[in-house]
């Protein structure tokens, strides 16, 4: 039984005239502990696929099983709970709440998990340390650089220790040095046993994954195991 199993998923915007097939019959299964890179050009449907995998969006048609359970018919609140327990999101545009400090943002998934304050404090501080932001805990997103905001987003994704990390272009807005920092963290998370789904348009970064799924015009055109994943220098 796969951790994630989607079958024949379509996402069609503006059906009829002018329609956009953002996902055009995608089937994909991902096992626990895998490190998968989803690669494709801009507009190929990567973010759409990630939203689908993260249950943030519904598909026009198709099936979705997580741990063998059909999630396509679950209620909104049930999906919220699964997202909270299982998935850590790193969004393409960070999606931090601007009125909250770095720590406040990182604590959000813990709050919704119903954690006590002391525990939240410990976990959020730990994950901010992990991304090297212990000195920026009480800064607002607007007081931080793009790379620092990206790292806050990562800290938030890992704070609740979810088994799955969904990362959409986590190095997209970063210079190569900060990009490498971020990739090091992702490799670290993978080593700890998490399932990593990394979206990128950068072949170099895709090479670091164990498995590469190439997508074009909403279709998977290539899906291969990378025998020699490149380490981060």
């Amino acid at each position: 039984m796969s951790l994630i199993d989607i079958r024949n998923v379509y996402k069609i915007y503006n059906p009829g005239e002018n329609e956009v097939r953002a996902l055009d019959g995608v089937s994909l299964s991902i096992e626990e502990g895998e490190f998968v890179a989803i690669i494709g050009q801009s507009g190929s449907g990567k973010s759409t696929l990630m939203n689908m995998l993260g249950m943030l969006d519904n598909c026009t048609s198709g099936e979705y099983y997580m741990d063998g359970i059909d999630v396509s018919h679950m209620t909104d609140d049930e999906l919220s709970e699964i997202r909270n327990k299982k998935i850590g999101f790193i969004f393409q545009g960070f999606n931090l709440i601007s009125s909250l400090t770095a720590k406040g943002n990182v604590e959000l998934p813990l709050v919704y998990r119903g954690m006590k304050r002391a525990e939240r404090d410990k976990l959020s501080t730990e994950s901010l340390k992990m991304v090297g932001l212990e000195k920026r805990m009480y800064h607002r997103p607007s007081q931080m650089s793009g790379g620092q905001q990206q790292r806050v987003a990562i800290a938030r994704a890992i704070a609740a220790r979810p088994p799955i990390i969904l990362a959409d272009e986590p190095t997209g807005n970063l210079d190569s040095h900060s990009g490498k920092d971020v990739m090091r963290i992702i490799h670290q998370l993978h080593k700890e046993g998490r399932t990593i789904i990394l979206i990128t348009h950068d072949n170099g970064i895709a090479e670091e994954a164990q498995r590469v799924v190439r997508i074009q015009d909403g279709k998977i055109i290539e899906d291969y195991i990378n025998e020699n994943p490149k380490g981060v220098e």
Partner: peptide, 16 residues
């Protein structure tokens, strides 16, 4: 609205 979207994606329920 965006804030609400972020909170939901992180696991907030409608009632919360």
């Amino acid at each position: 609205t965006r804030e609400i979207g972020i909170r939901k994606s992180l696991g907030a329920k409608t009632s919360t």
